[in-house]
Design a protein around this nucleic acid. Structure first.
Lengths: 225, 225
DNA sequence: TATTTAATTTGTCATTCGATAAATAAGGAA
DNA sequence: TTCCTTATTTATCGAATGACAAATTAAATA
């Protein structure tokens, strides 16, 4: 309204941050912002959320796309926890117990609005980081699970077949979609995540054993790689 | 380049369509366009795809949002086939056979790039038509399936519990996510849709039977509705 | 053919977008 | 204090956006 007077102590006294801190702050807020508004949203909107002017963004990132790339890295790469993989291979515990532990930990990371929306937005944009992420899930999560399962069932070691990977994907995707329904569509009726995961794993293990014994890999069609 | 001469027969001879045909054409092409480019894409881009000028769109739809609403209706409402529901309740056939038939028919409709992308885009926009669609799936597909399953297993009729609905959602979501991986992420390794569905249903039926016999509804916690 | 109706285009406006250049000001070094 | 570095803002450009009014033209009607 009028010019600020001395009594108005609320003047933000805009702080001047060192380059590295400011940059990290920008990325973190950009994750929130783009997750909520989509990547088509304006850099001016982001600047407003940051409490700075829009051209300042260009001192830290050469272009909007470069900023978005950093957002991808921060979400996809930095949040992947390396302890997940050894956990799945720890044969001291029964597989279904390992699976329960893993999926509870994994969903602790990815079941949040930010992660989910960034994932869906970037998927629709067709950026290849999504394809790479799914390859990671397949190679580091699903295929190890299938190998462990064969041992658990007392079956001989065989290379995993494509249809087995797809079967594991269906379980994985079912759990994932539970998070989507919860965080994106807001239409989950039972908030008992642990139970949903546990039930999904029971079905997966039962289904997989039936599947492996019904059409065993050795007698089935040879796998085209 | 130069002005068109008589030999240039390729002049599009722009046809003047009656209102209703033109309108339907606009909606159909708008589905393709927005599915590919997202709803943030420009009306000028759509007009170009239609081969007409941009202001013409406003003779048929009051605003861009109104056009988008019509796109939603055309995808969500008009493609829902009423024969799906009686199919699921046809007790002359074993349930898992009905499930296979249904999911093959259902995915014949929704497993196309258009449907999938419109669904994901609109979900991220938060329009409530998605929530309504999921309610439809729950009430007309998943709950009927659960009721049929109880009969199939020789269990007494009981109202379906929330955790059972979630369990059915996990199967449904797993199959759905197979389509997403195929059509959005282009990262499916086995194109045998029928087999993926069949395997998913085997696991679902096995898991559900275990689940229902392990914690039967009558002895479990009372359902909060 | 002449007239009328309505489908379609031309022209344009006010915003908003990503991006750049130049001006300002904060904070450390001298 | 004075100087210097650099974080930040102000001002602005050209392109793209949704929307509207008026002019044009194809096709139906008389």
């Amino acid at each position: 309204m009028s010019k600020p007077d001395a009594t108005q102590t609320e003047t933000p006294k805009r702080k001047r941050l060192p380059s590295s801190e400011r940059r990290q702050d920008f990325i973190n807020k950009a994750i929130e912002f783009f997750a909520e508004e989509g990547f088509e949203s304006s850099t001016r909107g982001l600047a407003k959320k940051l409490g700075v002017t829009q051209p300042l963004l260009y001192r830290y990132f050469p272009s909007k796309d470069d900023l978005i790339s950093e957002v991808y890295d921060a979400v996809y790469v930095n949040r992947w926890l390396p302890e997940w993989e050894p956990l799945l291979r720890d044969r001291a515990r029964p597989l279904s117990e390992r699976l329960n532990t893993f999926y509870n930990l994994y969903t602790d990371v990815i079941f949040n609005r930010e992660w989910m929306r960034i994932y869906l937005f970037s998927g629709l944009k067709g950026v290849d980081i999504n394809r790479r992420y799914m390859q990671l899930v397949r190679q580091r999560i699903l295929e190890p699970i299938l190998i462990e399962a064969r041992t658990e069932f007392g079956l001989p070691d065989e290379p995993t077949r494509d249809c087995e990977v797809e079967f594991a994907w269906v379980m994985h995707g079912g759990i994932f979609y539970y998070g989507v329904r919860d965080l994106i569509y807001d239409s989950v009726i039972s908030n008992d995540k642990e139970r949903v995961i546990s039930d999904a794993i029971v079905a997966f293990m039962a289904g997989l054993e039936i599947k492996l014994r019904r059409d065993p890999p050795s007698k089935g069609e040879p796998q085209t790689v």
